[in-house]
Design a binder for these strands. Structure first.
Lengths: 188, 188, 188, 188
DNA sequence: CATGAATGAGTTTTCATTCAT
DNA sequence: AATGAATGAAAACTCATTCAT
């Protein structure tokens, strides 16, 4: 009802981009799935590339907001870190397309150059929390960017592994263990 | 024993695929850079897609062999794990295109369906080493596939961070710290 | 009510297919002659093959309708048969491209398998008339499909002979004699 | 044993041309099926087109010889005509590829212009017999070329009908009836 | 705002033919 | 004679983008 054509186009495009990749998705398919005319896409976006970029902003924003919200609930650095990792798992379940798209875009070359980041990225939320924890003495001192790479890389790959691999361990246990693993990385 | 045209095509394709992505690389460019005629590509491979798949096999094989070779030098599980992580960093420097391509393919949708793995993958070498370490009591008991995800994900992202990010910490120190981090994940 | 591009494409394709054969006609030529862009062909048809099949349906339909119309004018089986044979000659003159194309397609191997006949074919009109004539006792009893083969094969080849061969006998006389020949085949 | 590479190429090409049409058959396929190298085709023929023309000559010659041989056995015009029609049916069974190829070539446009006929064609054997029969008074007087068209067209289509259609009448009876039909066309 | 036919430059792919070995 | 990799011109087909309605 409240969904405008613009939203329909975004939804359809995100679906397809995640399903088959950005360049393999044609504007015709996008329009078809959105229930609109091909040319209409150009009324709302400068082109397919711009649409893909826009979606990245939207998805990264959603992800970042989820992380921030999770972190806001906790005062203590350790609890914050746990909340962030848990939030990554939760987001990958609640908004799987956005999560998958963010990963994908990381490896996509846009026609008009690399993605600019005019806005802070999800990983920055991690970096801030880690830095705060180090300053407060809750975590051991390491390059916060390095620790972020560790935790984000570890968690990201574990999520992919959960979704696609043959997993023996139940999901909830994987999450708890991965949170524990994050602590091992930064504790003194 | 000059390089054959087939090898030239593989080299040119790997170059381009890493540089601009698979779908953004045209067969014409590949042929041009390989110094051969476009049609010749189709004598050696069924098409661009088949070429891209073939290259994945080649690169994954090179990576896996590097890991195996590194592991063979060490008897003790801890030393083996260290050797494997160190080997990932080394491989990403010695064969950066193969490394980059493997990462990229992870997020590429092939036209003809997902990549089959008729051959064992690099990560399997990690899993074997971790399993052995757990059985010998050197590492704490966890799902080896999960631990593999952790260490590979962490290391991979750290390498990317090293190559592209603004890094404060010197490379050698990053490597040693990441090896240490791997231990933290699996030690008792 | 100008002719649409789709019709232009059909016309151009039929022209070329008859002139130089299906596989010798390129999509570029077709588009050029139709005064449109090559890619536009693919908006209206799945490809060259589909276009060629479509044209067969159209031409066979035109031919069949001409035969039915001719038969409808006559009550008596003998008169109907005469009308049908005469109509074949007439159609080959009035719509020579359609006629030539139907013959050609008979010997063309489509890429996607043999031509399906979702619709009744021209020869069926012959078979019905012959069957009716046999049941009413006007013609001798023979397998109607066999008699159809005789008359259609004879007439078809005679038309080709008229158009391409060195003919001594004038066209009108050939037609009358061929009608007579048809009677000889089926009369008691 | 006695088959030379040249013969192998001819056999393979005839197979393929009949199976999928001339232009749909590639030189590579021909060479493959002949068990030889692609380039070797050019040692024996000027090209694919020349090979296809050569095969037409060979096949038409075989057909013509079969007809002549059949006719030679009979003195009387009626018996000759019967022998010729019977011979067409027989040839289509004994050498089905040659027969099918002759029909196909009729509708094929060669790259280098229409097929020349430096040698007499099969239909000429019919024309001679019919002419002789008319001169001797055994047949009614008609343009021999026209009568040839009738009989050849009728027989040819009946053969195709026998091979591809749903036939109720048994083959032998079809042959006898078609011979009878030929007589009806030319008898007084 | 909406449509979808039309565009045309670009892509992958095919294939008869050549040629060094 | 035989080979089959290499060629290159031309084919079929794709698709983001435009534009008249």
């Amino acid at each position: 009802m409240a969904t405008t054509k613009r939203d329909d186009i975004c939804d359809a495009a995100l679906d397809l981009f995640v399903e088959k990749g950005i360049s393999a998705s044609t504007t015709r398919e996008i329009a078809e799935r959105a229930g609109t005319a091909e040319g209409n896409l150009y009324r709302h976006f400068a082109g397919k590339d711009a649409l893909a970029r826009h979606l990245f902003g939207v998805c990264a924003g959603r992800f970042r907001r989820a992380l921030i919200e999770a972190a806001h609930g906790e005062e203590e650095p350790g609890a914050r870190l746990a909340a962030l990792v848990r939030s990554m798992f939760r987001f990958s379940r609640e908004d799987p397309k956005a999560f998958a798209y963010i990963l994908q875009v990381h490896h996509h070359e846009f026609a008009t150059g690399p993605v600019r980041n005019p806005q802070p990225l999800p990983k920055d939320v991690f970096a801030e929390t880690l830095q705060a924890g180090m300053e407060s003495g809750a975590f051991r001192p390491i390059d916060p960017a390095l620790a972020t790479s560790w935790i984000v890389g570890m968690t990201q790959r574990t999520i992919t592994f959960l979704e696609t691999g043959r997993v023996e361990t139940p999901r909830d246990q994987v999450i708890e263990e991965t949170i524990g693993a994050s602590f091992r990385l930064v504790q003194k």
